[in-house]
Amino acid sequence: MKALHPKQAELLEILKANISDPLTMEELADRLNLSAKSVVFHHIKQLEKKGYLKRNPANPRDYIILKDPEKNVIYLKMYGMAKCGPEGTLLDGTPTRIVPVDPSMIYFPACKGFMVEAKGDSMQTLIAPHDWLIVEQNHSPKNKDVVVCVNNGEVMVKRFTKDGENVILQSENPQYNPIIADRDSFHVEGIVRSIIKRSVSC
């Protein structure tokens, strides 16, 4: 990874410190003692080019730190599984926290990663309530993939199965019946790639 200009290193630290409440270009310029927003934008583009930062093209204040030059970590946004609107997506919501993660836990481009905290017991014993799930943003799961999805506005974690024209959402817990996904409202947010267990049952 390429070395950073001193201003870029300073900018990266400011971006990390304010990732949960991103600053405007004007505020960044003020923090960096720069007179022009264009200079800030140049340094941001350089951080992207050098692989330290990934920004959402549709929202410049929405970004992910891909690499911390002082610590071997990446930062993933965690989202709550709150109910979405009719056209809603989990990733439109406000992250509940930013989680530092060892890069060795990510087997896909970090810019496609996010996390959710599981709720409910429908996926036990595979996933317990409050487990942290590392998810790859991917809208094309394969049969039997465990996915984070939205169905009729409800965010859920289920095992994805295609049965002819229907998508069946299956729980691991046999107490829960399979769900036939609604064709108009169902969409997949991502595929669960790792599970961080937060409690140990004896």
Rank of each mutant, 00 (worst) to 15 (best):
92 D>R: 12
90 L>K: 01
71 K>A: 12
132 W>Y: 14
11 L>Q: 04
1 M>C: 12
21 D>K: 15
135 V>F: 10
181 A>V: 14
162 K>Q: 12
121 D>V: 08
17 A>C: 06
112 K>V: 04
147 V>H: 00
180 I>L: 10
176 Y>L: 00
120 G>V: 05
32 L>P: 02
29 A>P: 01
103 P>V: 06
200 V>W: 10
177 N>E: 15
18 N>I: 04
48 E>H: 12
67 K>G: 04
32 L>T: 08
150 V>S: 04
171 S>H: 01
122 S>E: 03
159 R>N: 01
56 N>Q: 13
26 E>V: 15
15 L>M: 15
131 D>G: 07
99 V>H: 01
81 M>V: 05
69 P>I: 02
12 L>D: 01
177 N>G: 10
82 A>H: 05
107 Y>P: 00
107 Y>F: 05
117 E>A: 10
167 V>F: 03
194 S>I: 00
148 V>Y: 00
103 P>A: 09
17 A>L: 07
66 L>F: 06
198 R>N: 04
137 Q>V: 10
14 I>K: 07
164 G>W: 09
180 I>A: 09
171 S>Y: 01
75 Y>D: 02
67 K>T: 08
159 R>L: 02
153 G>L: 05
185 S>N: 09
73 V>G: 00
165 E>Y: 13
40 V>W: 00
97 R>H: 09
202 C>R: 12
97 R>K: 14
119 K>D: 15
63 Y>K: 10
65 I>Q: 02
128 A>H: 14
182 D>N: 15
37 K>D: 10
4 L>N: 05
192 V>N: 02
3 A>W: 05
84 C>V: 13
93 G>C: 07
37 K>G: 06
25 M>W: 12
195 I>R: 07
163 D>C: 06
141 P>Y: 03
73 V>C: 02
124 Q>D: 07
113 G>L: 00
105 M>Q: 14
18 N>E: 13
157 V>N: 08
40 V>P: 00
113 G>K: 00
108 F>W: 09
190 G>R: 00
10 E>S: 15
114 F>A: 03
178 P>A: 06
143 N>I: 07
171 S>P: 03
89 T>A: 15
97 R>P: 02
57 P>I: 11
104 S>A: 14
84 C>E: 11
143 N>L: 11
130 H>W: 04
141 P>M: 07
114 F>P: 01
182 D>A: 12
74 I>T: 11
174 P>G: 03
93 G>E: 06
159 R>Q: 11
51 G>R: 02
82 A>N: 07
111 C>G: 07
131 D>K: 03
61 R>C: 12
163 D>T: 08
36 A>D: 14
153 G>D: 07
49 K>P: 00
119 K>M: 11
187 H>Q: 07
96 T>G: 06
126 L>P: 01
182 D>L: 09
36 A>N: 11
140 S>H: 03
175 Q>L: 04
59 N>T: 09
94 T>W: 04
158 K>E: 07
172 E>M: 14
162 K>T: 09
199 S>W: 11
200 V>Q: 14
65 I>L: 13
78 M>Y: 03
6 P>R: 14
39 V>H: 06
202 C>F: 13
172 E>P: 08
167 V>T: 12
20 S>R: 15
1 M>Y: 13
177 N>T: 13
102 D>V: 04
91 L>R: 11
170 Q>S: 12
193 R>N: 05
61 R>P: 06
36 A>R: 15
